[in-house]
């Protein structure tokens, strides 16, 4: 495999899943909140855990975004050292 296409695959792998990971994190956070509200606390706490879950989900989305950028930076730095 040539160097160019290897680089291309790396970039595709690292940046190609930003969108999906971001959305998945928000959905899981909010889904967990809704589950807590409706199943565990039987609608007594209704909007609150949903909002808290949503906030945590959005935070997790941004966190995974930063992780992806950090990972890519590390790979670039490793390459510079070689």
């Amino acid at each position: 495999m040539s160097k160019m296409s290897k680089e291309m695959i790396h970039l595709l792998g690292n940046y190609g899943h930003i969108g999906f990971t971001f959305v998945a994190a928000i959905f899981i956070g909010m889904g967990g909140g809704i589950l807590l509200d409706q199943k565990v606390f039987d609608d007594r706490t209704t909007p609150w855990f949903t909002f808290i879950g949503l906030a945590f989900g959005i935070a997790a989305g941004f966190k995974s975004l930063f992780d992806i950028i950090k990972q890519q930076n590390k790979e670039f730095n490793d390459k510079d050292k070689d």
């Binding site: 999906f20 990971t21 998945a24 994190a25 899981i28 989900g57 935070a59 989305g61 995974s64």
Partner: peptide, 15 residues
């Protein structure tokens, strides 16, 4: 802890 857990489960979904 919740943030890390959520972003770990998000891997399952996004992949």
């Amino acid at each position: 802890l919740p943030i890390e857990l959520i972003s770990n489960f998000a891997r399952l979904l996004s992949l």
